[in-house]
Computed example of a mutant assay.
Amino acid sequence: MNELSIAGLASGWISMVARWLGGGLVCVILIWTVTVVQAADGPLTYFADEAPLEVPKSNLPSSTDQIVVAKVRLIGPPASLLGIDQSGYPSREKPQEPLSAMLRVLDVVRGKRPEQELVGVTFGGGDLSNTYALRPGTPRQLAQEYFVAMYKDAFGFHLIGLPVSEARYREWRQEITEFERERLRSLPK
């Protein structure tokens, strides 16, 4: 093969990989656009704009006796705990709560204040293919303060889903979708 055909082959391969990654990224973005889980009686959020008056207890372990409602700020974007195995394929072992985040506790509305100001939490339990288990995704969303409900067990802190209106859910989804479209348009071609 001459240098020209090798360069063309490499360029075509890079272009194909970029399209594949871009398409995969769009799918991930559409699946993970907001911090909302669809519950049987309506959408839930892990990051609420207002302190919850009531915390749903249906998805809590029975041994949980201490729920903390706190005002927090995210320290960086939430991360997925769904990893790949040694072969490079997604791991068959799925964590019970596939998302994690680091939070700075600003104030405690209810419950006992965590011992440390920075708290690592997990959230997003359930089958993600059947939910909208998502997270703040735009710079504006990541910069604002939220109210969360959480409990602590032997494995650490876990966020509890809180009811959110359909209108608020749609606002979040729209904002993230528009942000991701603009971000993808600005990528070099």
Rank of each mutant, 00 (worst) to 15 (best):
A7K: 01
A7Y: 03
L9Y: 12
A10E: 05
S11W: 11
S11N: 09
M16Q: 02
M16H: 02
A18N: 13
W20D: 13
V26E: 14
V26C: 09
V28K: 05
I29C: 11
I29N: 09
I29S: 10
I29R: 08
I31V: 11
W32G: 00
T33V: 09
V34F: 11
T35F: 10
V36M: 00
V36D: 01
V36G: 00
V37Y: 09
V37E: 13
V37P: 02
V37F: 09
Q38H: 10
A39Y: 12
A40Q: 13
L44Q: 12
T45G: 03
T45M: 07
F47D: 00
A48C: 02
E50A: 10
T64K: 02
T64W: 05
D65Q: 10
D65T: 12
Q66E: 15
I67A: 06
I67H: 07
V68S: 01
V68N: 02
V69F: 04
V72E: 03
R73Y: 01
L74H: 01
P77M: 12
P77Q: 14
P78R: 01
P78Q: 02
L82Q: 06
G83I: 03
I84R: 03
S87L: 11
E97C: 08
A101D: 02
L103W: 01
L106D: 14
D107F: 07
D107T: 02
V108D: 01
K112M: 09
K112A: 06
R113C: 07
R113N: 07
E117W: 06
V119D: 03
G120I: 06
G120P: 07
V121R: 07
V121Q: 08
F123C: 07
F123A: 05
G124E: 05
G124K: 03
G125S: 12
G126A: 08
G126Q: 02
D127M: 08
S129P: 05
S129T: 14
S129W: 15
N130A: 11
R135N: 11
P136C: 04
P139L: 06
Q141S: 11
Q141A: 14
Q144L: 09
Q144D: 09
E145I: 01
F147H: 08
M150S: 08
M150P: 02
A154P: 00
G156Y: 09
G156K: 04
F157Q: 04
F157G: 01
H158N: 04
L159F: 10
G161V: 08
L162P: 01
V164F: 05
V164M: 07
R168W: 08
Y169C: 06
Y169H: 07
Y169K: 02
Q174H: 14
I176A: 12
T177N: 09
E178R: 15
F179I: 10
E180F: 14
R181G: 10
L184I: 14
L187E: 08
L187S: 02
